[in-house]
Amino acid sequence: MRREPPQRLADYAPLAFPAGMLIVFFVIPFATMIAVSFFEREQGGFYQPAFVWDNYARFISLFFGKVLGFSLFLAIAVAIACVVIGIPFTYLLSRTKRKLQVLWLVALLSILSLSEVMIGFAWSTLFSRTAGITNLFTALGLMAEPQALTPSFGAVMTAMTYQALPYTVLVLYPALVRLDPTLTEAARTLGASPVRAFFTVVVPALRNTILATLIMVFIFALGSYLLPQLLGRPQHWTLSVLITDQAIYQSNMPFAAAMAVFLVLVSLALVGLAVYAGRQKEAV
């Protein structure tokens, strides 16, 4: 049966339920959130319909600027770290035996699906004084005595890289599996070392994939809401943490909504950029 345009009204029937669900439970909530971002906050955590820009005007403060700047910086740092580790790793993975590949993929998926709460807990344990990695360092004689490594920027950065690395590998995987192996073979035949072939052939051929992946991981890292809270100090809080904090603990829904709308705009712009980068012809 060939694909054909719907002819009768009944042909549209299968679309009714999915379309209805997505409109009612995604488009409308989204619109509600945008509307609330213009509402006025009342004492006691409630809010009332209004049309004010106050919630957005609050962005223009030194505090908010610092949080935004730090969020962007952290997400960029995590994205770069993940891509730098992820590309050679995924490249090598895509060239190993199928059985081993599947094993790694199962492990990566399992870690990727692990709750952010659990990842935060696991790293706070690994960085703790009593059960942490410093006990190992002490036993090896590298350190005088065990110490706690949290809260710190390094802890936030490490845990976020841990969280985003499986995602990075899975985003890169299809592109690297499809990469023509004759490319590197040609380079090898011409006498290039494997490392040299990787950097002079594989990396340039994947330029756009790398850029798109960087952006995808950047957005993924921007969404991290618990790790900065569990492993960092208040100055390490990101926009996502701040939104949760305003919505739940400060009961300021309009301000939280305004920040969320802002985060959507930043993310959408970046997704657009990633799609554009991905569609550019690969230099193969």
Binding site: L22, I219, S240, I243, A257, A260
Partner: peptide
């Protein structure tokens, strides 16, 4: 467009989808 709507909640930072549901 519905395909896009289906993929959007997962692509955006989760806090946004969560807050959308909370207000809704």
């Amino acid at each position: 467009i519905f395909q896009l709507l289906g993929v959007a909640p997962f692509t955006l930072p989760p806090v946004i989808t969560a807050l959308g549901f909370l207000t809704f």
